[in-house]
Design a protein around this nucleic acid. Sequence first.
DNA 1: GTTATTGTTGATTGACGAGTCAATAAACTT
DNA 2: AAGTTTATTGACTCGTCAATCAACAATAAC
Lengths: 191, 191
Amino acid sequence: MPKLGMEPIRKAALVKATIVEIGRVGSLDVTVSQIAKRAGMSSALAHHYFGSKEDMFLAAMRHILTLYGAEVRGALALAEGPQGRLRAVVAASFGAANFRREAVGAWLNFWVLSQTVPEARRLLAVYQRRLRSNLLVGLRPLAGERAEMVADGLGALIDGLYLREVLKSGPPDRAAAVATAMDYLEAQLRA
Amino acid sequence: MPKLGMEPIRKAALVKATIVEIGRVGSLDVTVSQIAKRAGMSSALAHHYFGSKEDMFLAAMRHILTLYGAEVRGALALAEGPQGRLRAVVAASFGAANFRREAVGAWLNFWVLSQTVPEARRLLAVYQRRLRSNLLVGLRPLAGERAEMVADGLGALIDGLYLREVLKSGPPDRAAAVATAMDYLEAQLRA
DNA sequence: GTTATTGTTGATTGACGAGTCAATAAACTT
DNA sequence: AAGTTTATTGACTCGTCAATCAACAATAAC
């Protein structure tokens, strides 16, 4: 009963399933069959739409980065003044959509992937640059020439908070993460 | 030509080789044969001394944590006053022995491992607790009741700096990492 | 000098998994 | 209605790899 125009639907389902499975298993050692099964199709079909498992990983990564980008852009649109912008970026980084168990687990594994796969490395570099530049817009008026150092520190801190979330049990504590990051920011701006 | 007392030598060689190979390949997808070859023996012998690949991973992890612990303890022995202690812990965290490419790569992968293997998780939790408590000793006299929050932030920041090192190319910049961490600390203590 | 004990490996087993292929079927085209 | 394109899968190939085994060698123990 082949309806036409299945491609985007199937691909979306596979991307979602990839993230969920990576998060569930906790590593990139997920089989294409597992992913395909969760997405409700055969592994052959998964290979039909994506050429390889690596392609699926990369598509999943792009998806997560897109989500993140959208959340930041949305928050930034409502923000006012440098302080508001900074708070918006930090809050969006730990937004409910990004800071969920599966996404965080997937994130960590994409970091690993970036050690081997150039395209994955590129994507992660894009994310880092974007975060850095978003922070700098808010920081320059407030921290002057110290802005760069503060941005680097805050960026690393955010990544570190993601990393630590992996070890924790129970649901992610977004408020605590935001508090820690904002605390850093306030301390730096007191200078 | 079997000399006796090979066990500790072989095991040490395997542990070292495990770390190097994980760092080189950039993931836990290293074969026992690769590790054994680098350590100058057959894969069968590797299995003889360690029951399984997982055991090798865990031994490698323990080794890295031991190195780190030793470096911290050494630095702490020479340190004077709360400030000195804090600086010592931070500097040791980015010490030449720990903050090398292979070790950082291995570290990241152990984080991944901790998602699946309880013992790996336990080891990482021990590291986190130790770091936190080391920081708190120095922080309590200086930051009072804010000590806990600052310790958590600094801990996450250190992990984040490790994480970011993975993406960088070229040799690790220890000085920059220490500077960023100390900058955070000074900002917090200015309150 | 026979008998454990320790060190060592090549060959083998057994399982698993990525990617391909041939076949089937429904839709669209002309 | 014949032909083309899209959707879909079960079965298969081919490679890889962790783990085991059987065998051999050298040292220590008695």
